[in-house]
Nucleic acid binder design. Structure first.
Lengths: 337, 337
DNA sequence: ACTGGTGTCGAAAACGTTTGAGACTCGGCG
DNA sequence: CGCCGAGTCTCAAACGTTTTCGACACCAGT
């Protein structure tokens, strides 16, 4: 492990000079700076992040909270994609990504906030968690720079996809395709669910369409068995819908499965609509019609804004950022009449 | 931010004593230790990881290299699941997980190894990368405790799933179901591919089955369009196979899609076999017959062994660990004759 | 009474870096 | 000639821990 001291010795200058030269301070002569840098490179020097962090109170490390609701932390396609994009932008800006957790062996476990302070994260990104968990709220309310994904808190930056226009646009598309009897199996209660559901009701009213009570059902996100059952129920109705909206793309597979079991075909017998636009939706047959959220942009914007907030806490206004998506016209919605 | 110093003042002892009490050294009186611990808890103390790391050369941080081949880093279902399990075990043992990357803003980018040293990782886990990348090889050959996943290096711990018996068992199952004309679309060259392919040839020979050259094809992992094309080619053969093996579960979707386009049914007209056992395979219709790798165990074992290696470098023999899986009998293979 | 051991505790150095306050040199200007 | 400012560079303290070594007290055994 080679240190500032070694470079100083090799160059015949003091450690302070080396440090300043490497950090680009302007009270070092241009030629000595270059000489020092050259030597440092040759010796394969890199700083010790711990020492640097200790002195500067900056770790260039961002904590990511990605809780394991039902073990689907990283395997949650939507969030994994967002996170991946977040990570790439953060890394390009020189930040590393570390997961926040509350384990931490030494008997008494740390809270998310304590863990974040312990590691000295410069900022924190929260996604895919129970936002009502007091431990999460503590973290959000702390003084740390924070950005949340798919959920908004007052006075904090959040990046949310445009669920309202998403549902609006999808419904309009389906309407254009001639559908009038539209059912919606929505996800379990959450801010996201509320927005979509609200938009569903409003848009249906706007289109002058009736919504029989039996057309509104509920199922967990990313579950296929439950949406499968819901689908059967809908099919058995006296007047079944011609099109069914599912909580998300993955759970729409439950619809495919139910229909196939009844020897019905998508979309000829019934049309299916998802939400998310995960990779899968474009690879199943027939391709799923869905609202494609711009996960890449969500992750990127989240990282960009968070870093801005870290670097210039005063200049950035903390408010929700809406990321628009677009209707993906797959093959799962039939034109009827 | 509350420090050792503050606790020391509050307790009327020295910082040294507080440090030792909190770390459980045995040269501190039991009653003072308890007193100090209580006060520390009340004041909400937690250590400063940077200072601790600086002194002890231990970060309790594990680096994970998960490269972005084709942007599918975290969205790679198989590796995401393994990583998630790895992460849970590591965190339970008090280790944090940080991604290794080679960006690092300050103009000249760090190598993976340099980055790992910069952050002072106690150990490193490598998965889902090009193992022939010289930068990766550098990292592997370093003095750091390392575990690799799905690829073995001499003298290093690696956790690999049992591709050989996986292919063997799958073939036997399909044989039992009456299939004799079996095609294999294998993945692009890699250690994993080689093992599976080798096992395929050997087991077919063992079963006394012929393998027409046209039955062996190649397609990238996790691609559906290419496997779709391959499927068409196979179907158009004078004597098409009755069963097709795909590189992995996801790419098997290409098979489903091709068959549906030809108005053929799975498995009545043709049988389909995947490899991996990702979540998806159990949720599509008909359910995919595949070899289910025990990703949870792979991640857990990788973490356990790595931590062992970190804690007791001398006691652990570094060698590959084979994790067995099991044939998952879905609905995509028909019994024939 | 002296020795040796044991059990508690504290002083201080060290880890590798950053940074403000000064020190020195050298021109240029009044 | 003296002074000032600009340009370079160094000193030394500091960040929050851990850890070695020694100090001190107390007790048992001789």
């Amino acid at each position: 492990m080679i240190l500032l001291k070694d470079i100083a010795a090799a160059c015949g200058v003091s450690v302070a000079t080396v440090s300043k030269a490497l950090n680009g301070h302007n009270d070092i002569g241009p030629e000595t700076r270059e000489r020092i840098r050259k030597v440092a490179d040759n010796m394969g020097y890199f700083p010790n992040s711990a020492a640097k962090a200790l002195k500067t109170n900056r770790t260039f490390n961002i904590g990511v909270l990605f809780a394991d609701e039902a073990r689907s932390g990283l395997t949650h396609d939507f969030f994994a994609t967002v996170l991946d994009s977040f990570r790439r932008t953060a890394e390009a800006a020189g930040f590393d990504i570390t997961f926040i957790n509350s384990s931490h062996a030494q008997e008494r476990s740390l809270s998310y906030l304590a863990h974040s302070r312990y590691r000295g994260f410069d900022g924190v990104c929260i996604a895919c968690v129970d936002f009502y968990d007091p431990d999460v709220v503590d973290l959000v309310r702390s003084e740390l720079p924070i950005v949340t994904i798919d959920h908004s808190f007052d006075g904090k930056i959040s990046v949310v996809s445009d669920n309202v226009s998403g549902m609006h646009d999808l419904l309009h598309y389906v309407y254009e395709m001639g559908h009038r009897r539209i059912a919606y199996i929505h996800g379990l209660p959450s801010a996201v669910t509320q927005n979509r559901l609200m938009s569903f009701y409003r848009t249906m009213a706007e289109l002058g369409l009736a919504i029989p009570d039996e057309y509104i059902m509920e199922a967990p996100y990313r579950s296929t068995s439950e949406t499968r059952d819901c689908t059967f129920t809908l099919l058995d109705l006296p007047t079944p819908p011609t099109c069914i909206f599912y909580p998300d793309d993955f759970s729409a597979l439950g619809g495919y499965s139910a229909l196939q079991q009844r020897k019905l075909s998508v979309p000829d017998d019934i049309s299916i609509v998802g939400f998310d636009g995960i990779r899968l939706s474009r690879h199943i047959a027939p391709r799923l019609t869905t609202y494609r959220q711009d996960m890449e942009q969500m992750g990127r914007v989240a990282a960009e804004r968070l870093i801005e907030l870290i670097e210039h806490p005063k200049d950035v206004i903390q408010e929700p950022i809406l990321v628009p998506g677009s209707v993906y016209q797959g093959e799962s919605v039939a034109r009827i009449q």
